[in-house]
Amino acid sequence: MTTTAVRTRGTARGPRDSLMSRTTAMIIMSVFTVYFLLPIWWLFVASTKSTGDILTSDPLWFADPQLLSNLGDLFAYRDGVYLRWLGNSVLYAGLGGLVATLLAGMCGYALAKYHFRGREFMFSVVLGGVLVPATALALPLFLLFSQVELTNTFWAVFLPSIVSPFGVYLTRIFAAGSVPDELLEAARLDGSGELRTFFTVSLRLMSPALVTVFLFQFVTIWNNFFLPLIMLRDEALFPVTFGLYGWNTQLNQIPELRMLVLVGALVSIIPLVVTFLSLQRFWRSGLGAGAVK
C-alpha cells in the first residue's frame, strides 16, 4: 500500500460532526471496550487469588494477591506438565506455522509468477481446500494415521497443521500485485537463478502477506482442538489448550485445579497477545489483501 492511497486520519472532521454523534460514538465504543476487556481483567484478578478466595471474594478486585506463588504451583504441578504443554504448543504452532507459511508462500508465488499447464486447475483445487472444514478432516486423518501407527505421536498433530490452502490463496494474490515481473526479468538478466531470486528478493516483497499467513496459521494451530482430541492420548504430547481443557473437565473431582486452570489460561494467552502486538504493523497491511484485490 502506497502512502498516497492512505488518507491522513484525524483531519477530516467536517462541520457536520455534531457533539451528539461524537458522544454517541464514544459511548458505544466505551461500553464495548468493557465487554471485550472485562473477562480478561477478571481472569487476571482471579489468577492472583487462592482457590478459596476465587469463590468468596469480589470477582473483579484483588484479595491477598499471590500471583507468584500461584505461578510456582502451576509450574510445579505434576513435575511441570504445564510447561511441557506450553513447549508443545510453541512447537506445534510456532514451527508448524513457519513451515506452513514457507510452503504456502512458495506455491502461491509459483502460481502467481509462472505460467504452466494446469495452473488454474491447481489453484481451483487449493481454493476448494479453503472451503473444506478442517474438522471434517480430523476423523479420516485419525483413521489414516492409525493405519500407519502414527496416532498419539507428535507428527499426528504437526503434519496436518503445515498445510495451509488459505496461505496459498493469500500469497498468490499478494505476489501477483507486489512482485513486479520487471524485477524478476532484471534478476534473470543478472544471472540470478529462479529459486535464488525467490529466496532473496521475492520473499521479502511478500513479507506482509507472509506475516499474515503465519499469524493466521499460528492461531489456527494453537487453537486446534479436534485434532489433539482425536489423536492424542499421551498427556506429554498435549498442546496447552487441550491440557487445560482436560484439567477443566476434572474440576468436579479435584476442585483445587480451578486455580491452576485460571492461572494456566492467563499464561497461555500471553504468547499469543505478545506475538500479535509485536507483529501488528505487518499483519494490518496484510489483512485486507485477501478481500480487496
Binding site: F36, L37, I40, W42, V219, N223, F225, T241, A265, I269
Partner: peptide, 14 residues
C-alpha cells in the same frame, strides 16, 4: 482485537 488472541477453549473456560 485482543479477544482474538484468546483460544476458543480458554475463552469458553473464562
Amino acid at each position: 482485537f485482543v479477544p482474538y488472541a484468546v483460544p476458543g477453549v480458554i475463552a469458553a473456560i473464562m
